[in-house]
Amino acid sequence: MSKIVVIGGTGLIGSKVVRLLTEHGHEAVAASPNTGVDTLTGAGLAAAFAGASTVLDVSNSPSFADADVLAFFTTATGNISRVAAEAGVGHYVALSVVGAARMTDSGYMRAKVEQERLIADSGIPYSIVHATQFFEFVGAIAGSATVGDEVRLSSALIQPMAADDVATAVARTTAGAPTGTITEVAGPEQFTLADFVRTGLTFREDPRPVVVDPEATYFGERLSDDMLLPGEGAQLFETRFADWLPLNPPPAR
C-alpha cells in the first residue's frame, strides 16, 4: 500500500485518520512538531515526504488572530507544496470548512480560502474536503459566545458532525484518486446554532442560558440563515448529536 504523510497527524482529526489508514494497510506517517516536522520552517518535511504518494494536511494554526492564521496557512502551504512537488507526491489533500468562502468577515475563513487557492495552484493533483462544524467544539462555541453569564448566539442553521465521521471522510478521500475539486461532508441533522449549543450545555448540566441574538457573531462572522449549511450533493454521515453526547462526556474539571 502507499505511504501517506498526515500533516497535523497527532491532532484530533489527524490521529484518527492515521489509525484508519493504518488499519487499511497504508503506511500512514504522523507529521507534526511533536514528530520533528515543522511546516512553518520546512524542517523535517523532505525526510517525511521521501517515498510518499500522498500528503494530507489537517493541521491548524496555534493562533486564530487574523494576521497569525493567514501567515500560518500561507507559509505552511507554500512549504508543503514546494517540498511535496520536489518529492514527487501525486496527491495533495486538505481539510477545510463548509461555507468558508461565504464567511468573508472571518479572518480564519479568509485564511482557509487562501490555503485552498494555494493548493489548487500548486500543480499537484489535489482533493479538498469541506466539513461542517464538529460536535466536539460545542463547548468552544459556547465559550466564544459567552457574554456575562449568557451564551448569545445566532439562530442560523448548522448541520454539525462527529469528528470520527470527519476522519472517515478524509481518510476515504486521501486513499482515493485526486478529485481536483471540493467534497462537502456533514451530519444528518440541522439545528439552529442556538439550539445545538443549548442541547450540548443542557446535557452537560452547564447552567449558562442560551439567548438568541440576531446581532451575535460566530467567530467574527454575522451569519445568514444558511451560511453554515452544505449544498446539495453533500455526503451525509449517520451519527446523531443525541447519540454522540452520552459517549463523549466533557473533560473532568
Rank of each mutant, 00 (worst) to 15 (best):
residue 168 T to N: 10
residue 49 F to N: 09
residue 51 G to W: 14
residue 23 E to G: 13
residue 225 D to P: 14
residue 46 A to Y: 00
residue 52 A to C: 10
residue 129 V to E: 10
residue 36 G to E: 04
residue 3 K to I: 05
residue 171 A to H: 08
residue 186 A to H: 00
residue 184 E to L: 00
residue 175 A to C: 12
residue 131 A to Q: 15
residue 231 G to S: 01
residue 19 R to C: 00
residue 48 A to T: 04
residue 205 E to F: 00
residue 137 F to P: 09
residue 54 T to G: 07
residue 204 R to H: 08
residue 189 E to H: 06
residue 25 G to D: 05
residue 17 V to Q: 00
residue 113 V to K: 13
residue 122 S to M: 11
residue 41 T to R: 08
residue 181 T to G: 15
residue 135 F to D: 08
residue 127 S to Y: 06
residue 103 M to T: 05
residue 6 V to I: 14
residue 88 G to S: 02
residue 167 A to F: 06
residue 73 F to I: 05
residue 182 I to F: 13
residue 155 S to D: 15
residue 211 V to P: 09
residue 156 A to Q: 09
residue 46 A to R: 13
residue 199 T to V: 01
residue 77 T to K: 01
residue 58 V to E: 01
residue 40 L to A: 12
residue 167 A to P: 12
residue 61 S to V: 08
residue 180 G to I: 04
residue 54 T to C: 08
residue 73 F to K: 04
residue 6 V to W: 04
residue 220 G to M: 03
residue 54 T to H: 01
residue 202 T to D: 09
residue 249 P to L: 11
residue 140 A to V: 15
residue 126 Y to P: 11
residue 209 P to M: 03
residue 133 Q to I: 11
residue 31 A to N: 07
residue 173 T to C: 09
residue 209 P to D: 08
residue 17 V to N: 01
residue 244 W to F: 13
residue 108 Y to M: 14
residue 43 A to C: 06
residue 101 A to D: 14
residue 1 M to V: 09
residue 241 F to N: 06
residue 100 A to M: 02
residue 172 R to N: 14
residue 75 T to K: 06
residue 81 S to C: 06
